[in-house]
Design a protein around this nucleic acid. Sequence first.
DNA 1: GCTTTCGTTCGGTATTGACAGAACGTTCCG
DNA 2: CGGAACGTTCTGTCAATACCGAACGAAAGC
Lengths: 156, 156
Amino acid sequence: MPERFYEKRHFIEDISLYFEQMGMPRTAGRILGVLLICDPPEASMIDLCEELQASKSSVSTNARLLDEMDLIERVATPLPRQICYRFKPGGWVTFMRMRLRLYGSLHHIAERGLDLLQDADPPLRARLQEAHDMFSAIEEELPLLLKHIQEEHGIP
Amino acid sequence: MPERFYEKRHFIEDISLYFEQMGMPRTAGRILGVLLICDPPEASMIDLCEELQASKSSVSTNARLLDEMDLIERVATPLPRQICYRFKPGGWVTFMRMRLRLYGSLHHIAERGLDLLQDADPPLRARLQEAHDMFSAIEEELPLLLKHIQEEHGIP
DNA sequence: GCTTTCGTTCGGTATTGACAGAACGTTCCG
DNA sequence: CGGAACGTTCTGTCAATACCGAACGAAAGC
């Protein structure tokens, strides 16, 4: 049993809970948790199954989910017939971009709401105008912020 | 039946779906949707029950949730024994601040992960260093952005 | 070429949580 | 005071979904 075993499990569980808050399955969060602290940085599906005490099917499904989200990626492995995953460099930027698109959609919804209230008094429209201004500002500024961070740290 | 009936229902459903993505109950999102486009801008619980065809209990519970999140607020009403809600000015800023706290928590989790890898090589730490840098930057910059937007639009 | 070992997909199961109905407490009116 | 209207809370029910086991398909070694 590796040292710091319990601490690592706590970390994995923290990541899992966080991504559960973000609407993802627990197991997906746990896989990501492992791939964030494992040494070496890549892990096979069998490794993940053992580490998480989860079934093949669950690991397979959730790993594919993370792969499609571009948070992890498959890497070459000398082992035959085995698939290895690792955390994908730049994954956090990708993650934030995804969240960003969600906020952007609220921007559009607000616009549609303003259309519905186009004949109404400005005070009535203020509720949605506030949303529109806020989320278009975020939609505009946050990509710049992300790009800035990205360049500052040499993330691909 | 009021004009633009279907359009309003679509708007309400869009808001509902959006906040479902954010991890909130459907009914809470629908209440918020109504309070974003209703005229007058306040609605009693009975109004909401009728508009949404939902039970008193559901409306009561979810309105309280939105109230605790500071997205809506109770307002005075001439009607006896009735409670009126309206969208709370500045609610969107509050909303974004809440989301921000969530990202902040990831920043702290990343720090704990780095502690676990303190003896590891820098390449191994890069995964978490990227998260740490990204989310502390966001945690630092986004409040400024929010404050900027807030002042620019005179939101309380 | 047969067996073995992985990964994927499908169907069933258990758990979670959102909603409605019922009972309760409160406030206002007759 | 008694009754009615409104909001809250509690409990049961239903639906959604995350997980597992099993069957299937593919690829490598004997």
